[in-house]
C-alpha cells in the first residue's frame, strides 16, 4: 500500500472496505468522501484512470465495476465495498493487449491519449452490454466519453472492429458468466 493510502487510513472516520482491483484484493480504510476515482489515482497510484471533470460530464474516469462501465468520479469508494473493479491497467493479459486496446492502436483512435482509458473501458462495457449493433448505436452509446482531440471516427472504427472480432472469436475474451 502506498504511503498516502496509509495516511488516509489513519484519519478519523475512515471506513474499512474490501475491493478487488484488477484481480488483486485490497483491504483499505477509506474516508467516506473519497471517490473511487481518487482512491485509484491518489491512493493506489493507478493513474491510468483519468480525471477530466470530476462531475460525471466527460467519461475520462470510466472503469468497469462488476463488468459494468461507470463514472468513477461519481462513485464514492465506500459504495463499492465487495466489488470487482477493472481499470485500464487490468485489461491487458500477460502483456497482450485486450482486443479493444489493440484496435485503438490500429485505428489511431486517440491522439493525446487522455480520454483513451475511459473510452476503452467504456467500449469494453458497451460490448459487454451487447446493445450496440450499428455504427449509429456505437456513436450514441459512446457519447458519454468526450474526446476533445476529436478521434470519434476512429473510435467508432476501433469499437466496430473489436465487436466484430469478438463475434468471430471462439474464445471470447470478455466472457464472464
Amino acid at each position: 500500500m502506498s504511503p498516502s493510502a496509509a495516511d488516509a487510513s489513519a484519519s478519523v472516520g475512515a471506513i474499512p472496505i474490501r475491493i478487488t482491483i484488477n484481480g488483486e484484493s485490497h483491504a483499505l480504510q477509506v474516508e467516506p468522501w473519497t471517490t473511487l476515482l481518487d482512491l485509484l489515482r491518489l491512493h493506489l497510484d493507478l493513474t491510468g484512470t483519468k480525471k477530466g471533470c470530476d462531475h460525471g460530464q466527460c467519461g475520462a474516469c470510466t472503469v468497469l465495476v462488476d463488468g459494468k462501465r461507470i463514472n468513477s468520479c461519481l462513485t464514492l469508494a465506500v459504495m463499492k465495498d465487495g466489488s470487482e473493479v477493472t481499470t485500464i491497467e487490468g485489461l491487458a493479459q500477460n502483456g497482450d493487449l485486450h482486443p479493444v486496446q489493440a484496435a485503438f492502436v490500429e485505428y489511431d483512435a486517440f491522439q493525446c491519449g487522455y480520454c483513451t482509458p475511459g473510452q476503452i473501458c467504456s467500449a469494453v462495457g458497451l460490448i459487454n452490454e451487447g446493445h450496440a449493433q450499428s455504427r449509429e448505436e456505437i456513436r450514441e452509446l459512446m457519447s458519454g466519453n468526450i474526446c476533445r482531440c476529436g478521434a470519434y471516427v476512429n473510435i467508432v472504427d476501433a469499437v466496430e472492429h473489436a465487436m466484430a472480432h469478438r463475434r468471430q472469436s471462439p474464445r471470447n475474451p470478455e466472457a464472464r458468466s
Partner: peptide, 13 residues
C-alpha cells in the same frame, strides 16, 4: 501506428 500508442492504451503514459 503511434509509437507511444501502447503506453496510452494501457494507462502507462
Amino acid at each position: 501506428s503511434r509509437v507511444d500508442g501502447r503506453l496510452k492504451v494501457t494507462g502507462a503514459a
